[in-house]
């Protein structure tokens, strides 16, 4: 049987996680290709709807990666991002989607190995969780006709 390969979207802050991912590359550290990186100007720029749309359109997991606490270039974008992720985790739970599918992580620009480690661990967690239940939608039937 083929191993399930999750699709993971990582919203990475330009000032830390994005550079850390780049550094992981220069350090020749391998991390799973499942992780698709989207550069954002700050983790605080990531709105709840961006995360929801990623999940709706087929991501099995979403990472929001910002600067270490106290290091945000825009003062507190990372704190706001964490609040949003926490809010969204509860929202997802309400519709029966595992809240672990969305995680907030922090790192500095120099932490290439931390980025690679988080990417590998999160990919493993998503493999264990299995495909997002939203993907049942691939076999969708209309549930009722409009009157």
């Amino acid at each position: 049987m083929q191993r399930f390969e999750p699709t993971i979207v990582a919203f990475c802050c330009h000032y830390c996680a994005y550079t850390a991912a780049d550094m992981a590359g220069s350090m020749r550290l391998a991390y799973p290709p499942n992780v698709k990186i989207l550069r954002v100007p700050c983790s605080g720029k990531v709105d709840a709807i961006h995360i929801m749309k990623a999940l709706e359109k087929g991501a099995d997991g979403v990472l929001v990666a910002g600067c270490l606490e106290g290091d945000c270039h825009f003062k507190n974008g990372n704190v706001k991002a964490l609040q949003r992720v926490t809010y969204l985790q509860r929202f997802l739970e309400e519709i029966g989607i595992e809240p672990e599918r969305v995680q907030m992580v922090t790192m500095s620009a120099g932490m290439g190995s931390r980025f690679a480690k988080i990417a590998a661990e999160f990919t493993d967690t998503m493999r264990e969780l299995g495909p997002s239940p939203v993907k049942a939608g691939d076999r969708m039937e209309p549930c009722a006709k409009a009157s």
């Binding site: 929801m52 929202f91 519709i95 049942a136 969708m140």
Partner: peptide, 23 residues
């Protein structure tokens, strides 16, 4: 508008989860 988009997405996902289409 923001909350409408969020709820729309949540409802879509909830029904996709059940294998049903919701417009």
């Amino acid at each position: 508008r923001k909350e409408v988009a969020l709820l729309a997405s949540a409802l879509q996902m909830a029904s996709m989860k059940k294998g049903r289409a919701l417009d």
